[in-house]
Amino acid sequence: MLSWQWFLQCLGDDLDMDSRSKFTFMSDRQKGLIQAVERVFPCAEHRYCVRHITENVKQIFKGKIYRDAIWKLATCTTAAHYEREMHILKRLSKRAHLWVSKIPPEHWSRSHFTGRALSDVLINNMCEVFHSKLVDGRDKPMITLLEYIREYLMRKIVNVLKVIDKSSGLLTPYATNIMESVKKEANRYTLHWNGEEHYQVTGPNGDQCVVNMRTNTCACRRWEVTGIPCRHVVASIWVKAAHDPNVGKPESFVNPIHTMERWKDVYSYKVYPINGLSMWPKSHVPTLITAPKYHKPIGRPKKSRKKSHVEKEEATTGKKGKKATGKSVEVEVQGPSKKAKNS
C-alpha cells in the first residue's frame, strides 16, 4: 500500500491534484491500491473494472450464467433494477449472491454511479489499449522508453487532429452516433405532459419513466450518468419544442464535454519535438549514477503481458464455441456486447 500511496502522491503533484480533488479512478482492484486511493484522494471516485470482476467470478463459480449475471448487475442504471437482478442471483446461488454483495455497487454498477464523471465506462480498456502501443519500447532503457512514449503521443495527437478536421456538427462523432440511435428509439415512445416541466414517458415494452426538464434528470439515470439525453428525454424535448419554438434540438441538451469545441480544447495542447541526444546539455550534478547489477536470465525475454484466463479462452474460441481448428467444443464464451476488445 505504501508504494501505491507514493505513486498517487507523485501523480497528484504532476496533475496539480490535492486531497479534495474529485477525479474518478478505475483499476483492477490491485492489492493495496483501494486503501491508497481512499487515503490520498478521499473525495475521488474509484471504479472497479467489471471485466476483472468477471474473471474472479469464473475462478469460483463455474458457468456462463454467473458472468452474465455480473454484467446485468453492472449495466443496471437504477437502484431498483439492481435490486431485482440481485434477487435473481440470490435465487440462482446464495453463495454467489453473498460473494457479489461484498463488492460495493458504487464502485462497479452504473445504478450507483454519481454521474460526476459523466461516463458509464465499466472497463479499463483505455489503459489496456495505451499499454499495447508501448510494447515495442518496454525493453528499452528508461530514457529511450520515455522518448518512445513522447514520439507516440506526438503521432497520436496529429492523427486525432486529422479526424477533428474531417468532422462536423455540434457533437463528437461518438456522441453523434449515440444520439442518432437514441432518436430512433424515442420515436416509439408516448408522453403525458403535466403542463410544467415534468413528462411521463412510456415505451413499447412497458418501461415508464418521469423526465424533469427543470433539473435535467430522468428516472432511468442515463442522462445523469453519461451527460447524453436518453430516449425518454429526447421524446420529451420533441413535445416541449412543439409548445416552445425556442427549446432547440436534442443535441443542445448534451453536456458540453461531448461537443466538438471541447474535443478541440483537449487536443489543443501539443507535445513538442526535441533535439537529438548529442545536443543535450551536460549535467553538472557531481553524483554519478551507476548501472545496477543485472543478471541475464536464460531464454528469450517476453514482451507480451501475462494474459488472464478469460483472454486465453477468447483467443482459442469463437462466438459459437469453436476452436481455431474448426472442431466444435463445449465452452463458455462471453457475449460480444460485453467483452472488451483489446487492440
Score class of each variant (00 low, 15 high):
1 M>E: 13
3 S>I: 03
7 F>L: 12
11 L>R: 00
13 D>Y: 09
17 M>W: 15
31 K>L: 14
34 I>V: 10
36 A>I: 06
44 A>T: 10
46 H>L: 09
51 R>I: 12
54 T>M: 11
55 E>W: 02
56 N>E: 05
63 G>L: 01
67 R>K: 07
73 L>Q: 00
73 L>S: 10
74 A>W: 09
77 T>Y: 12
80 A>E: 12
82 Y>D: 07
83 E>P: 04
83 E>L: 02
90 K>C: 11
91 R>K: 15
92 L>Q: 15
98 L>P: 00
104 P>Y: 12
107 H>E: 01
112 H>W: 05
115 G>K: 11
115 G>A: 12
117 A>D: 03
117 A>I: 03
118 L>S: 10
122 L>T: 12
123 I>Q: 14
130 F>D: 00
131 H>G: 01
133 K>R: 12
137 G>S: 04
137 G>W: 06
141 P>N: 13
142 M>F: 11
144 T>L: 04
150 R>N: 01
157 I>P: 07
159 N>V: 11
162 K>D: 01
169 G>H: 04
173 P>S: 02
174 Y>D: 09
177 N>P: 00
185 E>D: 12
186 A>N: 05
187 N>P: 00
196 E>A: 14
197 E>S: 11
199 Y>M: 04
202 T>D: 05
204 P>R: 11
205 N>M: 14
210 V>N: 07
210 V>S: 08
214 R>N: 13
216 N>M: 15
217 T>K: 10
217 T>H: 05
218 C>I: 02
218 C>V: 04
226 T>E: 08
227 G>V: 14
228 I>T: 05
229 P>H: 08
236 S>P: 00
240 K>P: 06
242 A>W: 02
247 V>F: 01
248 G>M: 08
248 G>A: 11
249 K>E: 15
250 P>F: 09
252 S>Y: 04
256 P>L: 11
265 D>G: 12
269 Y>T: 15
269 Y>G: 04
275 N>V: 03
279 M>N: 10
280 W>R: 07
282 K>W: 05
286 P>Y: 14
286 P>K: 14
286 P>D: 14
289 I>F: 10
290 T>C: 07
294 Y>C: 05
298 I>V: 11
298 I>L: 09
302 K>Q: 10
308 S>D: 02
311 E>H: 05
312 K>Q: 01
321 G>V: 07
321 G>N: 10
322 K>F: 09
323 K>I: 02
326 G>M: 02
327 K>A: 02
334 Q>M: 15
334 Q>P: 00
335 G>H: 04
336 P>T: 13
337 S>Y: 14
338 K>C: 04
